[in-house]
């Protein structure tokens, strides 16, 4: 007698069931990991944006340079215009003088002598006048040439100055390159310290930017903190300010080359901006 048991069927069913469960788990896991990648909760970080002081200095210098060049050019123009006006005025005066003279002479001749002589006189006067005019013109020409020469000279000088400035700048840049890494390291330290001490207020929003100017001693002590650019949120500004004040002394800056310090860290701009905020 065969007793009904149904073991083969049930084994197949069970294995199938577990296989299905595992498969479902596998697919859901994959979907989940994808989802997790997308919706990963952003780590709320309070970041200070690195502000390379050397770059800023170079920028400042360049700005100053261009300003100076512009001013020079403007002055040059003004001088040229003055000279031109001067020349025109002198010419006018001379012509007026000549005319006056001619009129006087003509009157004298009319009064004293006959018409022919007067005519000759007149011709002579005309000739003289022409000569004088010629002379004046020559003088003007000369003056203009001189002017031109001066202008060229100025241009040459300016070029030389520019070249020199460029040379200086490139030399400074080279020095900076050797310094750059150290400066970067120091500013990274400063940023880290400030960041550690910065507790961001809840009113902070993305897109807020507060720029602080810090004045420091060579010992690393913070002398003065000043909000240069407000974020528009008082609490945010205050938090940034108090973060710097809480550090109080950047001991790591001690023992830095004093010239480097003066160049880069005497006054330092720090930019605070909240990043990775959800709202």
């Amino acid at each position: 007698m065969r007793v009904f048991n149904g073991y083969p069927v049930s084994i197949i069913a069970s294995v199938l069931f577990h296989g299905l469960v595992l498969l479902a788990l596998f697919y859901f896991q994959q979907a989940n990991t994808e989802v997790i990648d997308i919706v990963r909760p952003p780590s709320v970080k309070a970041l200070l944006v690195a502000e390379n002081p050397q770059e800023k200095n170079a920028e400042l210098q360049q700005q100053r340079e261009t300003q100076r060049v512009q001013e020079q050019r403007r002055e040059e123009q003004r001088r040229q215009e003055q000279a031109r006006a001067e020349a025109a005025r002198v010419q006018e005066q001379q012509r007026q003088e000549a005319e006056q003279q001619a009129a006087q002479e003509r009157a004298v001749v009319q009064q004293r002598q006959e018409q022919e002589r007067r005519q000759a006189e007149q011709q002579r006067v005309v000739q003289e006048q022409r000569q004088r005019e010629e002379q004046q013109r020559r003088e003007a020409e000369q003056r203009r040439q001189q002017e031109l020469a001066a202008q060229q000279e100025a241009a040459r000088q300016e070029q030389a100055r520019q070249e020199q400035a460029q040379r200086e700048a490139s030399a400074a840049a080279e020095v900076a390159r050797t310094e750059a890494e150290r400066v970067m390291a120091y500013s990274a330290i400063i940023h880290d310290l400030v960041q550690q001490n910065w507790s961001r207020p809840p009113s902070a929003r993305n897109g807020m930017v507060a720029v602080l100017r810090i004045r420091m001693m060579p010992t690393g002590d913070v002398l003065e903190v000043e909000v240069v650019q407000s974020s528009g949120d008082f609490a945010f500004d205050r938090a940034a300010e108090s973060a710097v004040l809480r550090v109080r002394r950047f001991t790591e800056l001690q023992g830095m080359d004093i010239r480097m310090f003066d160049r880069n860290f005497r006054t330092l701009l720090l930019t605070f901006r909240p990043q990775d905020l959800l709202n």
Binding site: F4, N5, G6, Y7, V9, S10, A13, S14
Partner: peptide, 14 residues
Amino acid sequence: SVTSWVMIVQRWMV
């Protein structure tokens, strides 16, 4: 788990 499911199905049929 696999064995218990074998039993579950088999008992159900029996």
